[in-house]
Nucleic acid binder design. Structure first.
Lengths: 119, 119
DNA sequence: CCCAGACATTCACGTATGTCAATATTGACG
DNA sequence: CGTCAATATTGACATACGTGAATGTCTGGG
């Protein structure tokens, strides 16, 4: 199939819309935006995002993140995958380690969508 | 009001924190904020919020909202309840009708938490 | 009174989600 | 190679979630 609107990553779907308080969200837009919000609708993922964002150099190794939680390594890996698939975290593999960094533009777009404030 | 931190509504819990990108979110803060994000992590609730916010006079009757969806009345009522309990929608009963309006401050706080705009 | 309409609640059900144990993959290093 | 360390994937399980049918609770009119 050719690439349609339905195949946009959640992040790509957000940048296109006016704030939710401005005009009614279309059903399609809502369906595309909800997954992005879902991605941060979990305490562990909120903390992961925050940890990566506030880490030195704006990036964090998985090994650092694992130590911050009392959760199994696969569980953290799972959450990181969700954030990555949503487009909120970028992945880069360097040697044996994997580094994540936040897609600040995506977060900003999401915030603008909710708050109606343009960065 | 002698309320403990644990008894704060999700909305009250958000106003206290610096943006997620500024410093690591504490486990407690994350646990308190996540329910608020969960409340809007659904396409139907996103549309409901948007419909109410952009409705004339900033408020909307449930009867108006029901008509905007191809969902049963109890389902809409359920979603409205979640948004209300999260503190994002205020309820007011007038006669037979119930009117909802958005808590714009809450939405703004949430947006600021994500975007870290300013400050 | 009682009825009809607006909205909420309860119950039941299928699906999605968070978690871990076990296992696979990948890369560095002897 | 073979082994170890860092992440990812798979499988399984309990819980949470979205939904509708049926029912309950108000409120205003006749």
């Amino acid at each position: 199939m050719s690439k349609s609107l339905l195949e946009l990553t959640p992040v790509e779907a957000v940048a296109c819309c006016s704030p939710v308080t401005r005009e009614p969200l279309s059903a399609d837009a809502a369906e595309r935006i909800a997954p992005l919000v879902k991605a941060i609708a979990d305490p562990v993922r909120l903390r992961l995002l925050s940890l990566v964002a506030s880490h030195a150099d704006g990036e964090a190794c998985v090994c650092d993140l694992n130590d911050a939680f009392e959760l199994s390594q696969p569980t953290i890996s799972h959450h990181l995958k969700l954030l990555h698939e949503a487009g909120l975290l970028d992945r880069e593999k360097r040697g044996v380690w994997v580094y994540y960094r936040v897609n600040t533009a995506a977060l900003g777009d999401l915030a603008a969508l909710l708050g109606g404030v343009t960065a």
